[in-house]
Each structure stands twice: as structure tokens, then as C-alpha cells.
């Protein structure tokens, strides 16, 4: 009994030893890679800060308006953005390279999946970024137009425009990633159909719609604006 127990324990320890001796070099190499990647990432981040500072890229982005395109406050710092992006990209690459050293099915599958997904992720990210920017742009345009045209609930109209455009961007991005494609597309059709139906009902059921329009027209003709335009 004791002998059997000893044999089992020895076998278990042998397996552990085998596994450790098999994975330890890979683990050490992976850790070394990650540490090296970390050092490189810090170095690259520092270098980018130095280079971009010399080029005054932030000033250029602010004066060209690109900074305000992404961040309405204009406080976007391209130097920081680029430096941090490079830092995290190098760290990620180090981590993936480290995982690759293990050569297991799982790590190989993870890396292959990530590498094949990376271009799609980038494109989807760009689509989302573009959609967000377009939503902001058109939402603000709608807001200002609705205020000047004296339309009801301008901010709500602007929000609807923003949400619709961002939603379209999400649908396109999900299509790009093959992620819940049908769900998003169906939701998009439902929202679009619902919006069209709501708009139709709103216009169709609005009592005195014609009176409202003619009253607005009369007001425009009769009062303020006419006198304000005379100078032109």
C-alpha cells in the first residue's frame, strides 16, 4: 500500500518535474521577452515624446483643427496618444511573442486568431471613429439648424441623428468583424423602419399642420427678419 502510494507520488512528482523542465525554459524566455518588450516600450515612448515635442505636432494638430475633430475640447495631445499607442503595441507584441514560445495548441490558436483579426479590428475601429465623428458633426449641424428654424426639441433631434449614425457605424463595424451580423442588421432595419413610421405618424397626425406652416410663413413675412435683411 505504502509502496503503491510512493509510486504514485513519485510519478506525479516526475510528471510535475517533466512539465516544469519542459515549460520553465519557455516561461523564462517568455518573461525575458516581456521584460525586454517592456524596456523597449518605455524607450520608444520616451523617444516619441522627444521627437514629437521637437516637431510641435500638437500645435500643428490644434491649429489645423484635427485635435478638435476628435476631442471637442481641443485638449487632445497627439504626442501622448502616439507615445501611449506605441508603448501598448510593443507590450502586446512582447506578450504575444512570449506566448508563442510555449508552442501549445491554445497559445498558437490565440495568436493566429489575434493576427487574423487584427486588420479587421483596425478597420472596425476606424469605422467606429469615423461614425462617431460624423455623428458629432451632423448632430451639431442639425442642432444649429433646428434652433435657427425654430423647430421643436432641437437637442432631441440632434441626439437622434447622432445615435442613428453611430448605430449605423456599429452595424458596419460588426459586419466587418463578422460579429452578430444578423442581429445588428435586423436591429438596424427595425430602428430605421420604426423611425420612418414615427415620422410619418408625427406628420400625418399633427393637427393643424397646415395652419402651423402657414402661420410660420406669415410670421416670417410680416415681422422681424424682413427688417433685419434690409441692409443687405
Amino acid at each position: 500500500m505504502i509502496e503503491t502510494l510512493k509510486t504514485v507520488l513519485e510519478a506525479a512528482l516526475q510528471r510535475l518535474h517533466d512539465q516544469v523542465t519542459m515549460f520553465l525554459p519557455s516561461l523564462l524566455a517568455a518573461l525575458t521577452l516581456i521584460v525586454v518588450a517592456y524596456a523597449i516600450a518605455i524607450l520608444v515612448r520616451w523617444t516619441i515624446y522627444r521627437i514629437f515635442k521637437g516637431l510641435a505636432i500638437d500645435k500643428f494638430l490644434r491649429q489645423s483643427g484635427l485635435a478638435f475633430m476628435v476631442d471637442p475640447s481641443g485638449r487632445l495631445r497627439a504626442t501622448r496618444l502616439a507615445a501611449e499607442a506605441a508603448y501598448w503595441a510593443i507590450l502586446l507584441m512582447g506578450l504575444l511573442a512570449g506566448l508563442n514560445l510555449f508552442g501549445t495548441d491554445l497559445t498558437t490558436h490565440m495568436i493566429n486568431g489575434f493576427v487574423s483579426l487584427l486588420p479587421k479590428l483596425l478597420i472596425a475601429g476606424l469605422i467606429l471613429l469615423g461614425g462617431t465623428w460624423l455623428g458629432q458633426y451632423l448632430g451639431r449641424s442639425m442642432l444649429v439648424w433646428a434652433v435657427n428654424e425654430n423647430l421643436p426639441k432641437p437637442r432631441r433631434l440632434a441626439t437622434i441623428v447622432r445615435v442613428l449614425i453611430v448605430f449605423v457605424a456599429v452595424v458596419v463595424a460588426s459586419d466587418q468583424l463578422d460579429f452578430a451580423r444578423n442581429v445588428f442588421f435586423s436591429a438596424f432595419l427595425i430602428v430605421l423602419g420604426g423611425a420612418a413610421l414615427t415620422a410619418s405618424l408625427a406628420f400625418g397626425l399633427r393637427r393643424g399642420n397646415t395652419d402651423w406652416l402657414s402661420e410660420k410663413h406669415d410670421n416670417v413675412e410680416q415681422t422681424t427678419e424682413r427688417s433685419l435683411w434690409n441692409h443687405l
Partner: peptide, 22 residues
């Protein structure tokens, strides 16, 4: 000049301010 927003948005949003000043 700094293109903080789209040019048309900036210019059209002056209208209520202008009417207030008038």
C-alpha cells in the same frame, strides 16, 4: 481659424447671439 468645429456650424450658431445683440 482654429477649426474648433465645422465652419458652417460655427457661423450659423451666431444667429441667436446676433438677434440678442440687435
Amino acid at each position: 481659424r482654429h477649426k474648433r468645429l465645422a465652419l458652417g456650424t460655427i457661423l450659423r450658431s451666431i444667429t441667436p447671439l446676433y438677434l440678442g445683440r440687435v
